[in-house]
């Protein structure tokens, strides 16, 4: 049996990825996370002196905190195994990536272990996030200078 024949056989037997099911799960859980976020935002607006503009940061911080606690308790892992992108894409997924890497590095001490590992997974998100933000801002600056759009 040559490798090509084998790969055909392998693909026949390997169950296909259930994309539709995965997308639905991601949609529901992702939506649920965002709904909780929205509820927390309204909480801040209604009971504290936050506006739409200022409640965003507080809400993000709260969601990050909740996800960090859930990661420590091992619950976020289970959620992620079920929801996939649904729990990875919201800011809570970022928190999960950072905290899980930090927990893992704890046995090697604070500096080399936690410090050195904490952005192992999230580092590329930060790099490309900051990088793309820079270029988008640059494009907008050029457009504004050229008089095409306003700030």
């Amino acid at each position: 049996m040559d490798p090509q024949e084998y790969q055909q056989l392998e693909q026949q037997i390997t169950p296909p990825t259930p994309y539709v099911k995965n997308v639905l799960k991601a949609f529901l859980v992702g939506g649920l996370i965002c709904t909780i976020g929205q509820a927390i935002m309204y909480l801040y607006i209604i009971f504290f002196d936050f506006t739409d503009k200022t409640a965003g940061n507080a809400t993000t911080a709260t969601m990050v905190f909740i996800a960090a606690v859930l990661t420590g308790l091992g619950i976020y892992r289970k959620l992620g195994a079920f929801a996939g992108a649904g729990s990875a894409v919201p800011v809570t997924g970022f928190s999960n990536a950072v905290v899980s890497a930090a927990i893992e590095g704890r046995t090697e001490g604070m500096v080399l272990g936690v410090g050195g590992n904490i952005f192992k997974l999230a580092g590329s998100v930060i790099l490309f996030g900051v990088g793309s933000a820079f270029f988008v801002a640059l494009i907008k600056l050029i457009l504004v200078t050229a008089g095409v759009v306003k700030w």
Binding site: T14, G74, R77
Partner: peptide, 17 residues
């Protein structure tokens, strides 16, 4: 798992394989 894949508490979806 740490050696070969992700941190233990990182949530990700595994395929059936």
């Amino acid at each position: 798992e740490r050696q070969f894949r992700y941190p233990i508490n990182y949530g990700f979806q595994k395929p059936a394989t």
